[in-house]
Nucleic acid binder design. Structure first.
Length: 422
RNA sequence: GCGGGUGUAGCUCAGUUGGUUAGAGCGCCAGUUUGUGGCACUGGAGGUCGCCGGUUCAAAACCGGUCACUCGCCCCA
């Protein structure tokens, strides 16, 4: 137990949890397809610059939270910590800026070197969409509506609140940032230690500090929305009007920010109260500056990502797929015939479990527990008479059926019929 | 990276102020039933008490370290 563990922050997905994950991913896939997003995938690792360039080489994220390593050729590679940078890189490398707009859906594993918590693993899984090209606020509205539709399909939307804010365009942001720094510098002695360093490194993040002293100081801090220029105000008004028209409810959250420079305008999160401190279940925003930062032409973009693990915790139960029919041998004399029959029934599209060990009683018991509905019982006696016993494991009824190993269609039909019966 | 909590059977957990052979329920295996599951009864397997060290005549228990899990902080692209 102590010796053979999965590496820290990783977990096996055994069939029952895998079923929950698949349910989440398929809901996201269906919701995004509904809006015309097409599934694609980028590599699980990239040259480190893809992830470090938009963030700055010395930031905490790059130096402490990335899984980076040199390969045998000396290239610095990083396991992808999120997929937006990879998708934008793929757009640039593939020359797809000629085919805008692009609407992409993805699902897959991501990696961050962090202290694990509930719903926060070192290897985790995300689903997400990216809408590349348009700078229209209706694009923002569309991806948010898509996210809401996805959460609704999981039955999670009712427990979530959509938090919405505008960061404004680059001009608005830098005006606000300057004002905020000026204000906070006059309280620098009273700020928490964490926020003192944030003031130098990433002042906007002080807005969502959890320190009560910081929150006190923030009461009278300049407000982001007062620094939005007309174009930024118009974008936000356009977005909220579209959400209202679509019946997507939202709350204005002036403290919801993104620290990185390539973000602009819309920032949003769907937050649930049922998951402790890790309450954000789906989050995203507009990142018009990212493509240029990665060395491509300026291309507007907006998207979101959602953590599969966290959403899977909100899914009540999901039953792993398992066969409904088992072929059970009564004695070794029917081993080969049973194997042959199993293959023939699979040809007919029936999922067959063929247990190989244990007495007949054991096999029936296990089949019943595994949720198998019908057992085909075959032994030397049946083989000699060209029959099988068809046993309904739910009500215990049993009937004899003819066995013809040259043509099992009749038996397949009888099984299909008993599977349909209540 | 920082702080709190928790590590005993496959799972959920008992285990007295330190005391000699570490328990229960569920699950698993076998039998009662030599070819028919669920119920019942009977029996059985399964434990380096997370790991290393220390205190002690004696440690699952006390102390130190370490690892893992968990909650919060930092971070959250």
């Amino acid at each position: 137990m102590s010796r053979l563990q999965p590496a820290r922050g990783t977990a096996d997905l055994l069939p029952d949890s895998m079923a929950k994950h698949r349910l989440v991913i398929e809901a996201a896939r269906a919701a995004s397809a509904c809006y015309g997003f097409q599934e694609m995938a980028t590599p699980i690792f990239e040259f480190s610059e893809v992830f470090s360039r938009p963030l700055g080489e010395s930031s905490d994220i790059v130096t402490k939270e990335n899984y980076s390593f040199a390969d045998r050729g000396g290239e610095m590679l990083t396991l992808r910590p999120e997929n937006t940078a990879g998708v934008v890189r793929a757009m640039i490398s593939g020359g797809l800026t000629q085919s805008l707009p692009l609407k992409y859906f993805y699902a897959g594993p991501m990696f961050r070197y962090e202290r694990p918590q509930k719903g926060r693993m070192r290897q985790f899984h995300q689903v997400g969409i990216e809408y590349l090209g348009p700078d229209d606020a209706l694009a923002d509205a569309e991806i948010i509506a898509c996210g809401a539709r996805f959460l609704a399909a999981l039955g999670a939307l009712d427990d979530c609140e959509l938090h919405l804010n505008s960061l404004g365009d680059a001009q608005s942001r830098s005006a606000y940032r300057a004002a905020l720094i000026t204000y906070l510098e006059s309280f620098v002695d009273q700020l928490s230690d964490d926020s003192k360093t944030r003031l130098a490194v990433n002042p906007l993040r002080i807005l969502d500090s959890k320190d009560t002293g910081d929150r006190q100081i923030l009461q009278n801090a300049p407000q982001l929305q007062d620094y939005l220029n007309d174009a930024s105000k118009a974008h936000f008004a356009d977005l909220t009007a579209a959400l209202d028209a679509a019946g997507v409810s939202w709350v204005f959250d002036p403290l919801l920010v993104r620290g990185l420079d390539y973000y602009c305008h819309t920032a949003f999160e769907f937050v649930t109260t049922s998951l402790g401190a890790q309450g954000t279940v789906l989050g995203g925003g507009r990142y018009d500056g990212l493509a240029e930062m990665l060395g491509g032409p300026p291309v507007a973009g907006v998207g979101w990502a959602a953590g599969v693990e966290r959403l899977a915790m909100l899914v009540e139960t999901a039953k792993a797929n398992s066969p409904k029919v088992a072929i059970i041998t009564a004695d070794d004399g029917a081993r080969l015939a049973a194997f042959q029959l199993a293959e023939q029934l699979r040809d007919s599209g029936i999922e067959i479990d063929l247990p190989t060990s244990g007495a007949i009683g054991k096999k029936l018991k296990k089949a019943g527990k595994a949720g198998i509905c019908v057992a085909v019982i075959i032994g030397s006696h049946e083989l000699a008479n060209n029959t099988v016993q068809l046993r309904n494991l739910e009500d215990g009824s049993q009937q004899e059926q003819p066995l013809d190993l040259a043509d099992s269609n009749g038996l397949a039909a009888a099984i299909a019929k008993s599977l349909l019966a209540p």
